[in-house]
């Protein structure tokens, strides 16, 4: 933890920016560079910065949920995305797509189990990185 006014002030802004950017990276990931892993890393970077500026206790309080639990919930979400193919009678991990408001020549808003899987990956990466970093920070 560092006591620097500039860092403290900048962190508040940077954390929200990084988290927002990480969600952007997550959502564009299916067709463009990005995705759950990159997004999770970016998001975790935001909270690592927060931990450097405000200490680990404040970070844990800001996260509300324990990072280990976030990672495990992410694993559950990713697994659920794979298992969801069972409802439609497809093989394990078959992508399921729903095109909201699709018309003849417009795909509408594509929602898919692939995205749900990516959100799971995001949470796993986010949670496990923060688990590791916070544990290391607390020991030093």
């Amino acid at each position: 933890m560092m006591n620097s006014v500039i860092l403290n002030a900048a962190t508040r802004l940077l954390v929200s920016l990084l988290v927002l950017f990480s969600i952007y990276m997550l959502l564009r990931g299916h067709n463009l560079p990005g995705g759950g892993f990159i997004g999770g890393l970016t998001g975790a970077t935001g909270f690592v910065l927060y931990a450097i500026a405000h200490g680990t206790e404040a970070t844990r309080a800001a996260l509300r949920v324990e990072p280990q639990n976030i990672a495990m919930i992410g694993l559950g979400v990713a697994l659920a995305a794979g298992v969801s193919a069972a409802i439609f009678g497809d093989a394990f991990f078959t992508g399921q797509w729903l095109f909201l408001g699709a018309t003849e020549d417009d795909k509408g808003l594509p929602l898919s189990s692939v995205l749900v899987f990516d959100i799971g990956v995001y949470l796993v990466v986010f949670g496990s990185i923060l688990t590791l970093v916070l544990a290391l920070e607390e020991e030093v």
């Binding site: 280990q68 495990m72 919930i73 694993l75 559950g76 697994l79 794979g82 093989a91 394990f92």
Partner: peptide, 22 residues
């Protein structure tokens, strides 16, 4: 057929998630 093959992998993962949360 695909699910009898995948379930020995899915079941422990699902159990892991639940067991960790509890």
């Amino acid at each position: 057929m695909s699910w009898t093959l995948a379930s020995p992998i899915i079941i422990p993962f699902a159990t892991a998630v639940l067991a960790f949360l509890f």
